[in-house]
């Protein structure tokens, strides 16, 4: 299980001219267990910074983040969450299987168990037959699946994604969306992801948080009540996406 609460978080970044840039202002966010939350905003709204603060990679200047009710400064179970980047970041010198294993290498998992879990996770994303290929031998979609598998191999309860799959072409992207939804429900994960694409937010999320830019503030939070799977070309999905785009 995983819950996230962002309480009154503010963040400033130092600028080169000595001034500081106000990136986030009094952010409040409540993510119950097993929800899929989209953080939507234009560039400069601090959405990636917010995700990095939740991930514990960046410290907030004010406020705090509660992970499973524990302040992130006192939180220790970091391996229960994983972070997916915009690009796949596969290590070119490792095979697909070895790239997936990378996720487990920081955790102290025995070699035998590691091998078994890598095989399991590759099967989960449908890449069992490609375990021994190097990244340059894989297609863009397959590479994304490997990156997803690397994030899942630690069996996280919280999955954070920063504009995932945004570099893929639309068909493959839609496939990856379906994969994430299937796996998130299978593994009972809580998912928080950042996107600038309203359609992606509506297809994936139960809850959408809209950020205003400079400094990033929560403008509104909406619930998306449509049943899964959501067809991106369905009128109700389109309508919600349009409404979201209008408020951006």
């Amino acid at each position: 299980m995983a819950t996230v609460r962002v309480q009154n978080v503010s963040k400033w970044f130092p600028r080169r001219d000595g001034e500081s840039l106000h990136v986030l202002q009094n952010i409040e966010l409540d993510v119950p267990e097993k929800t899929i939350v989209a953080i939507v905003g234009e560039s400069g709204s601090g959405k990636s910074t917010l995700l990095n603060i939740i991930a514990g990679l960046v410290k907030p200047d004010r406020g705090c983040v509660l992970l499973n009710g524990v302040k992130s400064s006192e939180f220790t179970d970091w391996r229960s969450m994983t972070y997916m980047f915009q690009d796949d970041r596969l290590l070119p010198w490792r095979t697909a299987a070895a790239n997936v294993a990378f996720g487990l290498e920081a955790a102290h998992v025995s070699r035998a168990e590691r091998k078994q879990r890598v095989a399991e996770t590759l099967a989960l994303v449908g890449l069992s037959d490609f375990a021994d290929l190097y990244p340059h031998e894989l297609s863009g979609g397959m590479r994304s699946r490997v990156a997803l598998a690397r994030s899942l191999v630690t069996r996280p309860t919280l999955l954070l994604m920063d504009e995932p799959f945004s570099k893929l072409d639309p068909t493959i992207r839609a496939q990856m969306h379906a994969e994430v939804l299937r796996i998130a429900s299978l593994m009972a994960m809580t998912v928080i992801f950042v996107t600038h694409d309203p359609e992606e937010a509506v297809v994936l999320a139960n809850k959408v948080v809209l950020l205003n830019p400079r400094p990033g503030r929560v403008r509104e939070t909406r619930t998306i009540d449509l049943p899964y799977p959501r067809d991106p070309s369905a009128p109700e999905v389109n309508e919600q996406a349009r409404a979201l785009r209008r408020s951006l």
Binding site: A55, T82, F85, R89, L91, A106, T154
Partner: peptide
């Protein structure tokens, strides 16, 4: 990017040396 990746997995400095720098 790879160092950042290692950080998201909470790898130690030594592990980053061994798994990212060395290769």
């Amino acid at each position: 990017d790879f160092i950042e990746l290692a950080q998201t997995f909470r790898m130690s400095r030594l592990q980053v040396m061994q798994k990212i720098y060395l290769p």
